Simulated scan of single mutants.
Amino acid sequence: MIYLTDGVRQRRYDVFKETNGDFYHLAQMTKAPQESLNHTADQLADYKLNMAKYVLYGRVDGVERVDKVIGRTVLFIDIDNESNYPDTSKRLNDLLEAYSVLHVIYPTISNNVKEGARLRAGVALDRSVTAEEYLKLWSVLLTSVGLHGDDTAVNQSFKQLQGLYVKTSQNAENEPIIYSDGQALPVDEFIKLYDTSPKKYRRKTLAINGFSVEAGNRKAPVWAERNKQFIACLLDPESNYMLFDGWDNMLTAVGGWTFKNTYGDVRTTVETVEAVNKLGSDPISNSELKHKFDTWFKRWTI
């Protein structure tokens, strides 16, 4: 099944079934993309938020964004910080063509707006996969091609939507790649590769600002993963509020987390929630927020 939204704030999926298969839909949407031409970076950000089409291919237990994702039938790889689009897309394409795997690669709406290669690859899978299987496939492909990808959909939110190709004046020089003369990636064979040599495909230690950071050789505790979600919402709530299944739920969670971790500092809690709320394109009103604080402070504990 195909689950679509217009922008990231839509709470309910537009659901339909493509008789030719999920990947066929992705290929067609890449061939005939949306266009947002002659727009500034700020205008593109607004378009991305409210109008660009986002998709999830697979199966959801319901039609609401809060509902559980049972499985996914297209694997997405997001690349944000590599050298440039032509070289990075070629490396990905060469790998996937070598396996004769159906795929598309296209520049994201941020390509040539933000620095570095900004691209997304969609890979057809021969069956629906769980979150654990998705992570294994993603790891094998990224390790094989020697690239670092955005791991949000594999480590934080399996229900994350991916943006379809939007042609802009900024990214128009970077043509998408559509490889439709092949086969879906054989899931069981690639999972077997991971299971045979798990250490080979786990993410390696990265050097960030001079510090050594372990990224994947051991599983982070639940509290650490949860804290990562809170920090993501503090930095960019519009992109991450569905980690808490809705804007109001996100504000409630951020407030409770701040209150607890500041040992009940009311002022810091209020200022933090207000600041996060203001980062939204459609923030809740001050009067509604005040009412919520009256309720929250009665039940929050430190």
Rank of each mutant, 00 (worst) to 15 (best):
G21D: 09
K278L: 14
D265L: 04
S285M: 00
I70R: 13
Y47R: 04
L185A: 02
F211P: 00
W247D: 03
K204W: 05
Y165A: 04
T88I: 07
N111T: 14
N38Q: 10
E132M: 09
R127D: 09
E18K: 10
D282M: 11
Y106P: 02
N217L: 10
P86D: 11
A207N: 15
V213N: 01
G7I: 02
D78S: 04
R59Y: 07
T152I: 12
V104H: 00
A41N: 08
D94W: 01
T152E: 10
D46K: 13
Y194D: 08
G256A: 03
P176G: 05
N277I: 03
L161F: 08
G280K: 13
T168Y: 00
S169K: 09
V166G: 00
P33H: 00
L49Y: 12
R9F: 13
A27Q: 04
G182A: 01
A184L: 01
H39T: 13
L4G: 04
G21Y: 08
E173I: 12
N93R: 09
I77R: 02
T152M: 10
Y99P: 01
P237K: 07
D61P: 03
D67H: 14
D22K: 03
Y106K: 06
F259W: 11
N50T: 14
K278S: 15
S36P: 04
P176Q: 02
E132I: 11
D188P: 03
P198C: 04
R218D: 08
I70E: 13
S180C: 06
A172G: 04
G122P: 03
N286R: 07
Q170I: 03
P33Q: 01
V8L: 14
K199A: 13
W257M: 11
V222F: 10
T258D: 02
K68I: 08
